[in-house]
């Protein structure tokens, strides 16, 4: 095994071009588990820890450009206002120790359907900035996930950053696990209200081979909100609409039975989470107090 330590981004891209099978390692929270348990023996590891620009983020007019290695802890501490859904999801990732090392870039690279950052990225709207010596391309996050633990990166590409739309309305994230902390998602759901475009976007995790949006649910809700004039009158969303939204979210999932949970339960939990998170975001939009889960003073 070779261990490459590129000093800057150009060197990293060159290394990846030279060794397309090389496994990039940043926070190590996925790769090292595979190494420790003999699940993977890559020929080459490329350490991305020394590349400073991967640890940087910038907030633009509409988009946050999040360096691939920015830790979850920093997302929580520094970007909760711009990326509230992602920050909520980040708080549920593994343990504090994992959150100090793990990053959204790593989550995308691993492309596990259970990755916690995928649903809020889908709900907010995001593009993956993939780069190689050949150049840079932007991959819409919906197109980034291509299968279980597979993504759209070419063998010579690395993730430079994720461009996530700044929140223009309330966002929520909720995940089910059978423990109250440090748990992998049985299933997860994110919702983002976009009052500017009068749309609602969603993201489902751990309930299909890839993270997915519940597009039919989004369309249904967009129409229902429009029809009821909700964006203008701010009225409470009728329970029947919220329920139907939940059912359509569950319908978008394609879950399996596994050791973490049954397919039926996953569908059921999605209906509940979708209904609840929609309620929380809508209440927040209506200004009825901050329903986000904050610590008590």
């Amino acid at each position: 095994m070779e261990f490459l330590r590129p000093a800057d981004w150009e060197e990293a891209l060159a290394a990846k071009a030279e060794h397309p099978s090389a496994v990039p390692i940043a926070g190590g929270t996925d790769v090292m588990v595979e190494l420790n348990f003999d699940h993977r023996r890559p020929d080459v590891l490329v350490d991305l820890n020394r590349i400073a620009e991967l640890e940087e983020w910038e907030v633009g007019e509409d988009v946050v450009r999040l360096g691939a290695s920015v830790s979850y802890t920093r997302v929580i501490e520094e970007l909760s206002a711009e990326l509230p859904g992602l920050a909520l999801a980040a708080r549920t990732v593994g343990s504090p120790q994992i959150r100090n090392r793990g990053s959204v870039g790593g989550n995308l690279g691993a492309a596990s359907p259970a990755g916690d950052s995928h649903p809020p990225l889908l709900a907010a709207g995001a593009e993956v900035e993939a780069e190689s010596v050949r150049g840079t391309r932007l991959i819409p996050v919906e197109e980034f996930y291509t299968g279980v633990k597979r993504n759209a990166l070419a063998p010579d590409e690395l993730i430079r950053a994720v461009r996530i739309r700044k929140a223009d309305g309330p966002q929520q994230f909720s995940k089910v696990g059978t423990r109250n902390a440090m748990v992998i998602a049985v299933c997860a759901f994110a919702v983002a209200l976009h009052p500017g475009t009068r749309t609602v976007r969603t993201g489902i995790g751990s309930a299909a081979p890839t993270p997915v949006r519940a597009r039919e649910a989004e369309r249904f809700l967009d129409a229902a909100l429009e029809e009821g004039g909700h964006w203008d009158n701010g009225k409470i969303i009728p329970p029947s609409v919220a329920r139907r939204f939940g059912e359509l979210v569950a319908g978008a999932a394609n879950p399996i039975d596994d050791v973490r949970g049954s397919a039926r339960y996953r569908r059921h939990a999605l209906t509940v989470m979708a209904r609840r998170t929609l309620g929380w975001t809508w209440e927040e939009l209506r200004g009825r107090g901050d329903e986000r889960s904050e610590r008590c003073a």
Binding site: I25, L35, N36, D47, Q97
Partner: peptide, 26 residues
């Protein structure tokens, strides 16, 4: 050795991390 127990927690440049999930070369 999979980041699920915290028994190997050390400070890496000040931040608590699981030493089992940091590659030695890093």
């Amino acid at each position: 050795e999979q980041g699920e127990c915290g028994s190997c927690t050390v400070r890496l440049d000040g931040a608590p991390v699981c030493a089992c999930l940091v590659a030695a070369g890093q």
